[in-house]
Amino acid sequence: MTFVLRVGVHANNPSLLVLSQNGLLEQRIAARGGRVEWLKIAAGARTVEYVGANLIQVGGTGLTPPIAAQAKGVPIVTFAASEARAVGGIYVRKDSNVKTIADLAGKTVSLAVGSWLQALLATALDRAGLSWNDIIPLDLTEPESRQALLAGDIDAWVSGGGLRGGADEIRAIANTGDLVTNPSVFFARRDFAEAYPDTIADVASALQDTDRWIAQHPKEAAAVLARVAGGPLDIGEWETHIAQRPWGIHQVDDRFITEQQKAADIFFRFGLLPRKIDIRDAIYRHPLNLDRAA
């Protein structure tokens, strides 16, 4: 019986972006009598909303959106994740009197609320003995945040590392690698995953093969990403990004579950989730048989 696999794709997940262009997934799904449709999503964190509405069956984001989706009751299961990505951090102007995370009390802090950056900031605040209510969070894009920080209109910026112009006027007060692992997280709608386990395995293996190709062909991959991402990065900047992060995915393991649970517990204590959750309730259990290294 013919079936359709709809996959969400957005500029913040280069693995899915390249996969949407190379035809690997289409070949594997066609062999099972299905076809693939790609749905472009403007804001990556909204991918889980598309899963909830059954507009897509598979997507990928950072660590925060799947946690929020589970807490809201979206029927989602996480099946794979990347290795740690130690990019970005929390930044202030070089002339700022903010020296540590504790100094952010009462300050304005910009970030993409709902993205993985929320977990980065919440973890930093928690370790410093602060809560979400101790700061003034502002939901801004990276370009908006950069502009506001350089102008002195906000006190701090939680960024994925896209400092670009003005980087010499900014300093870090916290680094991502010291706070969260920041993996890419891949998930599916629960009913689809249960009905088509072989398809989920196909998605995972196609992502693994795509990541291997990206790591081995950075110039070609950078050209693809510069063409399809629609963002500010040029080919050279994408090539730098490719060199700075790990490639390859693995089935979710105990380490991943522990990290996600820590973030979920902090979110709940900070009033950022409507209810307490157990991450294990939204983990895909069928084996994917993935080689750990890309």
Rank of each mutant, 00 (worst) to 15 (best):
G44K: 07
Y91C: 10
P246R: 08
N13V: 14
S82W: 00
R190N: 13
Q208W: 13
D211C: 13
P66W: 11
E194C: 11
T100F: 12
A204I: 04
K107H: 05
T210K: 03
A294P: 14
W132K: 08
W116L: 01
A174S: 15
V48I: 15
Q118R: 03
L225C: 11
N182P: 00
L273M: 10
G106Y: 04
V180N: 08
F186T: 01
R285D: 14
A119P: 02
D281F: 00
G165M: 13
G161K: 05
A43G: 04
D202M: 07
I277D: 14
Q251R: 13
A293H: 10
P232W: 01
L16D: 03
D209N: 12
Q260Y: 00
R146F: 09
D281A: 12
G62V: 09
D134C: 02
D291K: 04
Y284K: 05
I101R: 09
D168W: 00
A68D: 08
E239V: 02
R32D: 11
N289V: 02
I283T: 06
A102K: 10
N54I: 00
Q147K: 13
L273E: 13
L290I: 12
L17E: 06
I101Y: 11
P287A: 13
Q27N: 14
D134N: 10
P274V: 05
A263Y: 01
N22L: 08
A243G: 11
D155Y: 08
N289K: 09
I29V: 15
L63Q: 15
D126R: 14
G8D: 15
L207I: 15
H241M: 08
E220Y: 05
G231A: 09
G114F: 04
L138G: 00
L273V: 06
K94P: 01
D95K: 09
D234W: 00
D278N: 10
Q261R: 04
D153K: 07
L25Y: 09
D234M: 03
A222V: 02
L104N: 02
H217M: 07
G114W: 02
G8L: 10
G248H: 09
